[in-house]
Nucleic acid binder design. Structure first.
Lengths: 129, 129
DNA sequence: CTGTATCCCCGAAGATACTG
DNA sequence: CAGTATCTTCGGGGATACAG
């Protein structure tokens, strides 16, 4: 980010694990950090639940809506859109009447399950202690 | 959570990876999910940055404050308190005049760096694509 | 130096009505 | 069925003053 001499985008985690954080971390560096952004998205009220449901099997829109008690249309749509933009879920429209839309985990979405399980392990180990 | 027949607390990730999510996920199950809570905390505006700074070396309170451009006292204190309550950082008071307080990563905090690096890897691989 | 207490603002999330 | 549009509400986060 502040270097500009690599083609791989830097972020707080890699800077800290690698060359070290700058003496003064500029405002905006952490907001632009893609890892923080990912954490934020996954920490959204509904995101993780939706991801894990799609990890089981693909779901239709209203199927998700019925299964997740209390979610509003607006929030389900928004959650799915963000996940789609991030390449974690795919959206497939079946041109039937009435139209059906199926949401499923992409390859990248399934890859996410691995580090997620690692984090979940850490959480569980902490609860035991 | 909904079982009650194990002593290890269930959460969305383990339910999905294991026996499967219920047909109707009750409102409150995801809010109580410790993995979501962890993701939420790590996704806070300043948390990850503070964690990675303490991963480099212990810091004094004002040292963190000066190094993180734009953070308010309120937010730095709040961030550190939450991390301390979660057992991720330790707080050591030196009874000097004026008093000095050192924040450092606990063993559990250092353990967190591993799954965090895994997630960061996933993020970076996604950016390359 | 290391905080706490208070007030304020703005954007995320919810409720509801409507549409292709 | 699968959304969008609009309004409202709520809490995270910032600014500032004060304290041990």
């Amino acid at each position: 980010m502040s270097d500009g001499n690599t083609d791989v985008p830097r972020h707080i985690v890699s800077e800290a694990l690698g060359p070290g954080l700058p003496a003064l971390v500029p405002a905006g560096e952490y907001e632009a950090c893609p890892v923080t952004q990912t954490l934020q998205m996954l920490g959204d009220k509904w995101t993780l639940l939706v991801v894990m449901m799609l990890a089981e099997r693909p779901h239709r829109y209203n199927e998700l809506r019925r299964r997740v008690e209390g979610i509003s249309q607006r929030m389900l749509t928004r959650t799915l859109r963000v996940l789609e933009e991030d390449g974690i879920v795919t959206r497939t429209v079946f041109p039937t009447v009435p139209p059906g839309v199926e949401y499923a985990l992409s390859d990248r979405g399934r890859d996410l399950l691995v580090p997620l399980a690692g984090l979940a392990d850490w959480v569980v180990r902490g609860q035991a202690a």
